[in-house]
Design a binder for these strands. Sequence first.
DNA 1: TATTGTTATACTCTATAACTATA
DNA 2: TATAGTTATAGAGTATAACAATA
Lengths: 154, 154
Amino acid sequence: MAPKDELPLALRSAYLTLHRRSDAVFMEYGITADQFVLLATLARGQAMTQRELAARMPSDPSTVRAMLLLLEKLGLVSRAAHPTDARARTVSLTEAGVRTFQRAFEAGQEVRDQMVESFSPGEARTFLSLLKRMTQSLGERVTQVAVAVAEPSK
Amino acid sequence: MAPKDELPLALRSAYLTLHRRSDAVFMEYGITADQFVLLATLARGQAMTQRELAARMPSDPSTVRAMLLLLEKLGLVSRAAHPTDARARTVSLTEAGVRTFQRAFEAGQEVRDQMVESFSPGEARTFLSLLKRMTQSLGERVTQVAVAVAEPSK
DNA sequence: TATTGTTATACTCTATAACTATA
DNA sequence: TATAGTTATAGAGTATAACAATA
């Protein structure tokens, strides 16, 4: 069987394994692996709009909204009016959100270590590079469609 | 930032991108990407029990059952009594299931090609190998049972 | 007109726990 | 006692479409 035909299932198994391990680790902090990703995204760039947040996750704006409602109820994020755009709302971590993220990040260290325990440093870099290139290749058509859709309007 | 710290999010982005592209492709055939994985698993080893199926996906037995109910309603899989174990049921693709899987597999060729379009053949093999090693490292403490079940299948 | 976000809605996947039937 | 599967239940994430407010 060609590597190409095995890749999708191998990628899926890798991700699902990571996702389940992460869920198990983060459960102690009252959050899911996906919620952790949202917190991590906010931690890297505070006060972004919901659309920016969705684009970076990457996820759907209405999915992100559903997640934000849950996280707001947990007191981990807050939404405020955007300074210049009255349509938009900026999303931020609360103090509790920052603390929870930091603790969960530390607790996740074990999983991150275990991901690369069979890799040399060079292999880890290669793996990261290949993952990014694959994501870009696969995402390109989506961009083209978006461009094509946006085309008639110019 | 160390590659190790970027890897989880990079893996997630790669998988989610693949998953969304796959869902879009398979929608035409009335199935989801995850249902396609179940059909593909059956196509590679007919008449397995629900537990074997769950172990190979990899997924949870009760999740697999929920998926099987949907796929049975679509007429793509069928369940029959196990020849020797009265507790168990064997799961198989129906003729319609085989056809749907084959068509969906062909339709997915474009996505599989695009995954590796920026890779040399050697890089594709390396990527697959690293994915498998990562999954194994990460799963060692959690999936003893799944590994034991999956092993006999060569 | 296009964009940001909300609302309403629906469905798939996920998983735990209690249960039965059988090994 | 352990295992295969079912049932009941719950919740998270996903996404679409119609809508209001604003750019």
